Simulated scan of single mutants.
Amino acid sequence: MAELKHVWTNNNVFQAGGTTVHWTWKVGEDEHYWGFCVRPRQFNSDAEIVQQFTTSDNGNAWFENLIVRTNTGNLFRFSAIAVVGS
């Protein structure tokens, strides 16, 4: 049975309203399926992931790239879930 491993970012980030920002998060590996999301930390806010892609470097580090748009601006927190096992 597959298990889920859930990871939150350690810190909240602020993004001003009416902006689109490219956020980078060093997380993950290439052995499991990973899913990502962004969550507003306060009420009456919005967040849209416009584009998402993964990059890696020569040191076997994986970086999730999330381009996020918001109309209202707020503190945000990122979440990742890995499916472990089969």
Rank of each mutant, 00 (worst) to 15 (best):
M1K: 01
M1V: 01
A2T: 10
E3G: 10
L4T: 00
L4D: 01
L4A: 00
L4M: 00
L4H: 00
L4G: 00
K5V: 05
H6A: 01
H6W: 00
H6Y: 01
W8N: 12
W8P: 05
T9L: 10
T9E: 05
T9H: 04
N10E: 15
N10T: 08
N10I: 04
N11R: 03
N12I: 04
V13A: 06
V13W: 03
F14G: 08
Q15K: 03
A16M: 07
G17D: 03
G17V: 06
G17W: 10
G18K: 13
G18N: 12
T20L: 06
T20W: 06
T20M: 12
T20N: 09
V21I: 12
H22C: 15
H22G: 08
H22W: 13
H22I: 12
W23T: 00
W23E: 00
T24V: 15
W25F: 09
K26A: 09
K26V: 08
K26S: 05
V27F: 02
V27N: 13
V27R: 08
V27A: 08
V27S: 11
G28L: 10
E29T: 15
E29W: 10
E29F: 10
D30Y: 06
D30K: 06
D30G: 10
D30P: 00
E31L: 14
E31I: 05
E31V: 07
H32C: 09
Y33A: 13
W34I: 08
W34A: 03
W34C: 02
W34Q: 03
G35I: 05
F36N: 05
F36M: 12
C37R: 15
C37V: 11
V38Q: 00
R39A: 12
R41G: 04
R41Y: 06
R41H: 09
Q42V: 04
Q42K: 04
Q42F: 04
Q42N: 12
F43D: 11
N44C: 05
S45W: 03
S45V: 05
S45C: 14
D46M: 07
A47I: 02
E48N: 08
E48C: 13
I49T: 12
V50I: 12
Q51N: 15
Q51F: 11
Q52W: 01
Q52L: 06
F53K: 07
T54A: 15
T54N: 13
T55W: 01
T55Q: 01
T55N: 01
T55R: 01
S56F: 15
D57V: 05
G59D: 10
G59W: 03
A61H: 11
F63N: 07
F63H: 14
E64Q: 14
E64H: 09
N65Q: 04
N65C: 04
L66V: 03
V68G: 06
T70Q: 07
N71M: 11
N71Q: 13
T72K: 15
T72Y: 07
T72C: 08
T72F: 12
G73R: 01
G73T: 02
G73W: 00
N74W: 03
L75P: 01
L75I: 01
F76V: 14
F78L: 15
S79Q: 13
A80I: 07
A80F: 14
A80N: 14
I81H: 15
A82E: 09
V83P: 09
S86A: 09
S86N: 11
S86D: 11
S86M: 08
